[in-house]
Computed example of a mutant assay.
Amino acid sequence: MDALVTAFVAASLAEWGDKSQLLVALLAARSGRPGLVLAGALAAAILSSAAAAFAGTLIGGTITIRAMSLLVALALLFAGVAGLVRRGPPALGSPRTPAILAAAILCLAAQMGDRTQFITFALSGRFDSPSLAAAGAIAGILGAAVPAALLGRSFATTVPIRAIRIVGAFLFLITGFVVALKALQLS
């Protein structure tokens, strides 16, 4: 259960203001079909989270609990630093591409190697629970994507994305330092 809740909270925070969330808002506004865009984002979230969780269990079985805890701390610190980096609007590709396909491809590309995937990888290995870590991450990704899809173009002006992103970044940094200190105290 720890993996599920932790992955959900971390993914929810990490996805606010992230490229995949902004892609969902822009694609939903352009296509006028938020349901199809969410379906594509869901497919991308499933693939991305499942791959990260599977890889995390492969690594988790080969290193010590201290090393795995330090990896979680590193993932949290990475998420904090990445949250402080300003990002430009994502490219949307061709308007002729069906909304579900555009959302799936673009969101999957945006999620590869991002902070949500790294956190899912680390949590899956740390808690040895790939299905719960992936499920939590998927739910967190969708939790951030739904308001973006429903609000469309007004999302950026309605929601204080930058403030949420900065607060989330500092929470990740603080939590990462605490987890690192706890991992270094293990004997």
Results as ranks from 00 to 15, higher is better:
residue 109 A to E: 13
residue 51 A to P: 05
residue 75 A to L: 10
residue 29 A to E: 14
residue 84 L to A: 10
residue 134 A to R: 13
residue 95 P to G: 11
residue 163 A to D: 10
residue 41 A to V: 03
residue 60 G to F: 04
residue 170 F to V: 15
residue 175 T to A: 14
residue 9 V to F: 04
residue 145 A to W: 04
residue 114 D to Y: 08
residue 115 R to Q: 07
residue 40 G to T: 15
residue 27 L to N: 02
residue 174 I to Q: 10
residue 178 V to H: 04
residue 83 G to P: 03
residue 43 A to W: 02
residue 51 A to N: 12
residue 115 R to V: 10
residue 66 R to F: 01
residue 53 A to N: 08
residue 135 A to Q: 11
residue 53 A to M: 11
residue 46 I to A: 12
residue 113 G to F: 04
residue 55 A to L: 14
residue 127 F to Q: 05
residue 172 F to N: 04
residue 186 L to T: 04
residue 39 A to N: 02
residue 105 I to H: 10
residue 76 L to Q: 13
residue 62 T to L: 15
residue 157 T to G: 10
residue 123 L to A: 13
residue 150 L to S: 00
residue 93 G to C: 08
residue 137 A to F: 01
residue 61 G to L: 04
residue 137 A to L: 11
residue 89 P to S: 14
residue 69 S to T: 13
residue 62 T to N: 07
residue 109 A to T: 12
residue 180 A to D: 14
residue 84 L to N: 08
residue 77 L to H: 05
residue 173 L to T: 12
residue 52 A to P: 12
residue 149 A to I: 04
residue 174 I to M: 13
residue 79 A to V: 11
residue 163 A to N: 03
residue 101 L to Y: 11
residue 75 A to V: 08
residue 72 V to R: 12
residue 42 L to H: 03
residue 38 L to K: 07
residue 79 A to Q: 10
residue 124 S to N: 07
residue 32 G to V: 09
residue 89 P to G: 12
residue 55 A to Y: 01
